[in-house]
């Protein structure tokens, strides 16, 4: 690693000024996370004090105006929507990455990748809007009412495919080309090579992509808010409308006061904790050696 310590250059007044400024800015940026967390805790403190942690699970219902704060339906909504989309998007994302590397002709492969990169840049509100105008009516015609867990899963799938695909693509690109040549020289078929060589050597990278996709699906607000119907009820099947934790915040922040507002901050804190967990798992994986031997 390039260790560019400051002792390379000679020191001057300007140097001290700059290094001081830079240090200050870095400390501010580094302290930002602390600031975010402490504000979230500070704002949710009243709720944790007045309501307590367990009532978020034991209260009969979510009626904040009547002092009833059950978060369970929203938690289930979030879990089902996230799980469904990850389940759908992981195979699609990984298969498309394989498509790009081993199946598509070069020109098509380049265009396909460009397209997925564009897909990654489309704002979530546009996905939500398209889902609301196109997908929800389609589902509604098939199985009313339309705004549903299924709509949420489909839109989230579309949104996290690029994340999973691009990370998978990058880690497949890191497989030594010698592996591919030796596998072919042994007469392994294309699929055998993928199954026995490529997937085992890249599994850490693939998992990282899936975790990042999971984190994105979990934190997504606008798209699910627009297509899921937002009814506070634990879903019993795919066509039930759901409300996620994120949508709940977005819907009620505008008028929430007092303990209600604090309760929303609690759900924000919960969400942040989960996302941080998944992101750090992904980061931890990323820093592990990719080519450690497997069984």
């Amino acid at each position: 690693m390039i260790s560019s310590s400051s002792n390379i250059s000679s020191r001057s007044k300007g140097d001290y000024l700059l290094s001081g400024t830079v240090r200050l800015l870095a400390l501010m940026a580094g302290g930002l996370l602390l600031l975010v967390v402490s504000f979230l805790i500070h704002e949710s403190w009243p709720a944790l004090q007045h309501i307590g942690f367990w009532r978020f699970f034991s209260d009969p219902d979510w009626y904040p105006t009547e002092d009833s704060y059950q978060l369970t339906p929203m938690i289930w909504g979030t879990i089902w929507a996230t799980a469904g989309s990850v389940l759908l998007a992981s195979p699609l994302g990984i298969l498309s990455a394989l498509f790009c590397h081993f199946y598509a002709p070069p020109l098509l492969s380049r265009w396909y990748r460009r397209m997925v990169e564009l897909l990654a840049g489309i704002p979530s509100v546009v996905f939500g809007f398209w889902g609301l105008v196109v997908l929800v009516p389609l589902i509604g015609r098939w199985h009313p009412p339309g705004p549903s867990l299924l709509a949420g899963i489909l839109i989230l799938t579309l949104m996290i495919i690029p994340t999973i695909m691009l990370v998978a693509h990058a880690s497949i690109a890191h497989v030594p080309v010698a592996y591919i040549h030796s596998a072919s020289a042994l007469g392994l078929s294309r699929w055998s090579m993928i199954w026995h060589i490529i997937l085992p050597t890249t599994k850490v990278g693939l998992l990282t992509g899936i975790l990042l996709g999971l984190a994105r699906a979990l934190g997504e607000t606008m798209a699910v808010l627009m297509v899921c119907g937002n009814v506070v009820r634990t879903p019993s099947h795919l066509f039930d409308p759901i409300r996620t934790l994120t949508a709940n915040i977005a819907l009620e922040m505008a008028y929430a006061l007092g303990d209600h507002r604090a309760a929303l901050f609690v759900s924000g804190l919960l969400l942040m904790g989960l996302v941080v967990l998944f992101v750090s798992m992904a980061e931890g994986l990323r820093h592990r050696n990719t080519y450690v031997a497997t069984k």
């Binding site: 930002l32 979230l40 934190g219 915040i249 922040m253 941080v276 992101v279």
Partner: peptide, 21 residues
């Protein structure tokens, strides 16, 4: 490390934070 974590925080949580601060 703290910036890595910050990068993963959902935007709605930033909304809450911005509103409060």
């Amino acid at each position: 490390g703290s910036l890595d974590v910050l990068a993963g925080v959902p935007s709605i949580v930033f909304g809450l934070f911005g509103n409060a601060l």
